[in-house]
Design a protein around this nucleic acid. Structure first.
Length: 955
RNA sequence: GCGAGAGUGGCGGAAUUGGCAGACGCGCUGGACUUAGGAUCCAGUCCCGAAAGGGGUAGGAGUUCGAAUCUCCUCUCUCGCACCA
């Protein structure tokens, strides 16, 4: 009668934990603290996905384990609840995003509770709560109030920004403009991704290859006033502090690549103060410029008489045969000679219309147009033509380059196409894979280091020496300086959405109601700035206007001290709320501060942070950036928020076999099939479209390293698991799994599938398998034949036998060691071995059963709480001490040792566990089989590793 | 193209980090109990071979008494970046 019945048992224990506040965390840690954080989810309308509980189960296991080891554990959960889907739902249905969001949160909360995670639910927060985003807005004000002091590498209050004399002389407005130019939060006219089909502006990361990520609609680039965050100021610290973090190398390298630090030099090329008739700067003006630069040094901002470029290869300056500026470069107009202006202008317009996809398509030929103007190469005084080409990006470096076709593949392609001179200045010397003669002839681009040639007095220097020498030389002459650049761009921080945090910023209006261009930040006492009540969300679809422009006037306009202001109508991106939520969890109801400093100091940093790899770059970089600003400004006590980071691997759908069928019904081999441009499939040999068909496992068989059709082994079949998606119909719903197998089985299966960080396919049969294990654990301890739940008669209060004790302690050790390394899959395997062994034992010592229940409890907490009851305990096991193991009990008196002859396993011998080398060797020689093999042979060498193996090398 | 990671039975995956390859689970085969089995239990399950034995960790070379593990080359897959000067 009392079979293992999770459907009854799991809700019972969830209720128990809730009523007894079993997992409530004290305000301050009692004893050693451990802060374990999950990446909080966006509560989508689809509910929980089996990918979510993977990381959540892993952290829950760690938390339950650490509680049993006496640690004070902080383990909260909340909702990253702003986001576009709720807003789009509102556009369609008129339902307020808050209502949709609350409904979705309720679903997520129910589903998470159903899985028995030990969160302290009293700390739950949602980024959409005014009590929460009040502090998000507060942090924005802090960013607005901070400038980055590059000298001390620290963010400081804007009031401490030194104002240059010349700015001060221009008066109050100039000073404010100067300050605004230095804030970490600043405004910029920047292009946004406007998607007319979706009627919204998309974030860069929502645009993949020039079309919208969802729907694949075209995206236009339109300039709009935007809020930017100066994350580039922190680029160096964001990169170098990675070193102190316990993160996987792959994630660190993703972040490093994203930051993309490069070192090189800035160099000014003289173009003359104004255009000349033939486009050539005047020689005497160049001479004067050279002299003035030697006297005055290198200016921080380039004047109108120079084109400033950035290069990582200043050693190739003598090989610069032309220059290229980006189509958006401010000098385009003035450099375009009258006879070419029309052509140049047309080119720039075309470039502006191109999507990112067109511009970055690698297969594409280089394009560009000559301006008719020339610049003077500062190292040799030669005039070089200036071109406009879209392979130079306005957003990187200075938006202008010197082109060295002999040593840069892009410049080489361009020079070839437009027949520009190619002057080699780096001799590769003799090296593998490089055609030195071709390089020296200018027929091939060589981009590595070498020895300088054709470089005046720098010739014969190797690349590294040259770089230092030329940097000094340029600096002395005031023509350049060493410089660092980042691939990382400042963070576009505003969105034209309704469902996001309003900015706590007012725009000043003049008497006519037009913006004066001056902004005013609200004070902390004015927060939160809540969203207005809106009549409709379905605003204009033909231009990228913030929906809040349609807000009621009572919200939109503010009068303060007699001045009229209009509120900022952009809202913050979804990333904002997730940048600091780990701090709010520590003190979620604090009305005075984002978190009490004492509490912050006691719990931070996060000891373990687990989440999907899709956040490896952006979220983690943004959050680290905010944290560093908070650190600089004294709000937090640690320079980094997340000490250890683990990315769970994606869970794919079930393994699928796919065959391909032509129109005429014949099967085509998978090796002959490729994806067509439209997303369908084509047979490579005939170019005919083929259709993918799902095959059953018994229709295929393995042949070599591929699967083939059973009935026609010449036909190869694809076998792989795909990402879960609605369209593929392979989504697994956790509700269904819990209904059929129970939450403990779901948890256990997700941990048993393989290493946490690996990508793994789902298997319902696998869930069934771990359910079988839990059934066996139940039967091992509970009397299934009895009417009510009671102890299995085989379980008695006896002392364990030596072997039973060894199995027990070995299991405790293995499970504990694996858990410390988050190797949950192998820990579960060890507990399965324990169960397989003890099911055959009778009587079964009750003490051993209790230990197993404790070991298993982090994985299958509901079942184990119940078994703990059955074993005669009346309280929760959540705070029972973690079982300890006894090395002495593990040690065996005799061990089996393999004996090899010439590295091949030939025999196994039984020896005392502590047998020394000599004893091992003589026992091995005494073995009948070994003796036979050594007979008449010469033993050249004997390798004996005590406790491991014996190897005879013979001839 | 550049950067990172991976490749082990029919499948998911183990292997104390250089020392018995395939733990554990699924699947499969046979058997027991059954009206029944998508329940449970027992036995088997890397390949060739009747056995002795031989082969085997994507492929090839190398270091070593000994390699899934270390080195080099090749191939394949996954992820990220993608004209970043």
């Amino acid at each position: 009668m009392p079979r293992y019945n999770p459907a009854a048992l799991e809700p019972k224990w969830q209720k128990f934990w809730e009523e007894n506040r079993t997992f409530a965390t004290p305000r301050l840690p009692e004893g050693e603290k451990m802060y374990v954080l999950d990446m909080f989810p966006y509560p989508s309308g689809n509910g929980l996905h089996v990918g979510h509980p993977e990381g959540y189960t892993a952290t829950d296991i760690v938390c339950r384990y650490q509680r049993m080891r006496g640690r004070s554990v902080m383990h909260p959960m909340g909702w990253d609840a702003f986001g576009l889907p709720a807003e789009q739902h509102a556009k369609k249905t008129g339902t307020h995003p808050r209502i949709t969001t609350e409904k979705n949160i309720a679903t997520f909360r129910r589903q998470l509770k159903m899985l028995g995670f030990s969160y302290d639910w009293s700390r739950e927060v949602a980024t959409t709560d005014p009590d929460y985003f009040r502090w998000t807005q507060h942090i924005f004000l802090l960013l607005f109030d901070t400038w980055y002091d590059a000298e001390v590498q620290r963010g400081r209050p804007i009031t401490e920004l030194p104002i240059p004399k010349d700015v001060e002389a221009q008066g109050e407005a100039a000073i404010r403009r100067y300050q605004d130019d230095h804030r970490l939060a600043y405004q910029l006219e920047a292009p946004v991704n406007w998607c007319p089909a979706l009627g919204t502006v998309l974030a860069n990361e929502e645009v993949i290859g020039g079309v919208s990520e969802r729907g694949g609609h075209p995206v236009l680039r339109l300039p709009m006033r935007q809020w930017m965050l100066r994350i580039t100021a922190y680029a160096d610290r964001l990169e170098s502090d990675l070193e102190r973090l316990d993160w996987s190398e792959s994630i660190k390298s993703l972040q490093r690549n994203w930051i993309g630090r490069s070192t090189g030099a800035e160099v000014d090329f003289f173009i003359g103060p104004e255009p000349t008739v033939n486009g050539m700067p005047l020689a005497e003006q160049f001479e004067e410029w050279v002299v003035s630069r030697i006297e005055n040094g290198y200016p921080r901002k380039p004047g109108d008489d120079v084109l400033r470029i950035y290069t990582t290869r200043p050693d190739t300056l003598f090989g610069a045969t032309y220059m290229v500026i980006a189509p958006e470069h401010p000098f385009v107009e003035r450099l375009a000679m009258p006879d070419l202006a029309h052509e140049v202008c047309a080119y720039c317009e075309r470039a502006a219309r191109k999507s990112d996809l067109d511009r970055t398509d690698l297969a594409k030929e280089k394009t560009g147009v000559f301006t008719g103007s020339y610049a003077v190469n500062p190292v040799n005084g030669r005039a070089v033509p200036i071109w406009v080409a879209d392979y130079v990006l306005i957003s990187y470096g200075t938006g202008a380059i010197m082109a060295v076709p002999a040593h840069d593949t892009r410049d080489f392609e361009f020079a070839k196409k437009f027949d520009l001179p190619i002057v080699p200045v780096v001799d590769p010397g003799q090296r593998e894979g490089v055609d030195r003669e071709a390089v020296l002839r200018g027929d091939s681009a060589y981009t590595e280091d070498g020895v300088a040639i054709n470089s005046g007095r720098f010739s014969r220097l190797d690349t590294a020496e040259f770089k230092t020498a030329i940097a000094d030389d340029l600096a002395n002459k005031g023509m350049g300086r060493a410089a660092v650049n980042y691939r990382l761009r400042d963070w576009l921080f505003s969105r034209q959405h309704f469902w996001g945090e309003p900015f706590p910023i007012l725009h000043e209006l003049d008497a006519q109601g037009n913006p004066t261009g001056m902004t005013r930040a609200l004070g902390p006492e004015d927060l939160p700035v809540d969203l207005p009540e809106m009549a409709t969300f379905n605003v204009s679809h033909d231009r990228p206007e913030p929906p809040l422009e349609q807000a009621p006037e009572t919200w939109l306009y503010v009068t303060l001290n007699g001045s009229r202001y209009k509120r900022e109508t952009n809202t913050m991106p979804q990333w904002a709320g997730s940048c600091w939520y780990y701090l709010r969890f520590l003190d979620p109801r604090n009305g005075q501060a984002l978190a009490d400093p004492q509490t912050e100091k006691a719990w931070m940093p996060v000891d373990l942070y687990v989440g999907g790899a899709e956040h490896a770059v952006l979220h983690l970089l943004y959050a680290r950036f905010w944290h560093k600003v908070l650190y600089d400004r004294g709000y937090v006590s640690t320079p980094e928020p997340f000490m250890k980071l683990v990315n769970q691997g994606m869970i794919l759908g079930e393994m699928e076999f796919t065959g391909y069928r032509t129109k005429s019904g014949e099967m085509a081999s998978a090796s002959d099939v490729k994806e067509s441009a439209e997303g369908g499939f084509l047979a490579k040999s005939s170019s005919q479209p083929v259709e993918a068909v799902k095959l059953l496992p018994d229709q295929v068989e393995k042949q070599g390293d591929a699967f083939v059709l059973k009935e026609d082994p010449s036909i190869r079949v694809d076998s792989r698991a795909y990402k879960m998606s609605k369209s593929r119909g392979n989504v697994v719903n956790p509700d269904e799994v819990v209904k059929d197998y129970g939450a403990d089985s779901l948890r256990l299966y997700e941990m048993f599938m393989g290493p946490l960080e690996a990508v793994k396919p789902w298997s319902m049969e696998g869930v069934n398998g771990v359910r079988g294990f839990l059934d066996r654990v139940w039967r091992m301890i509970v009397d299934e034949r009895a009417e009510e739940v009671r102890l299995n008669p085989a379980v008695t209060d006896v002392e364990p036998s030596e072997e039973q004790n060894r199995v027990l302690h070995r299991t405790i050790k293995a499970v504990t060691d694996d858990l410390n390394q988050m190797a949950f899959n192998t820990a579960i395997a060890r507990m399965m071995e324990f169960t397989n062994y003890f099911l055959k034992e009778a009587p079964r010592p009750k003490g051993a059963m209790e230990k197993l229940v404790l070991l298993l409890s982090p994985y299958a907490p509901h079942l184990c709480e119940e078994l703990w009851r059955v074993l005669g305990h009346s309280d929760t096991l959540a705070y029972e001490p973690w079982p300890a193991y006894d090395e002495a009990a593990i040690r065996e008196s005799t061990v089996e040792i393999p004996v090899q002859v010439n590295g091949k396993l030939r025999a196994k011998i039984q020896v005392p566990a502590d047998a020394d080398q000599a004893a091992l060797e003589s026992t091995a020689r005494g073995n009948e089989r070994v003796a036979e093999l050594l007979e008449g042979k010469k033993v050249l060498k004997t390798i004996v590793v005590p406790g491991r193996m014996v190897n005879f090398v013979v001839k």
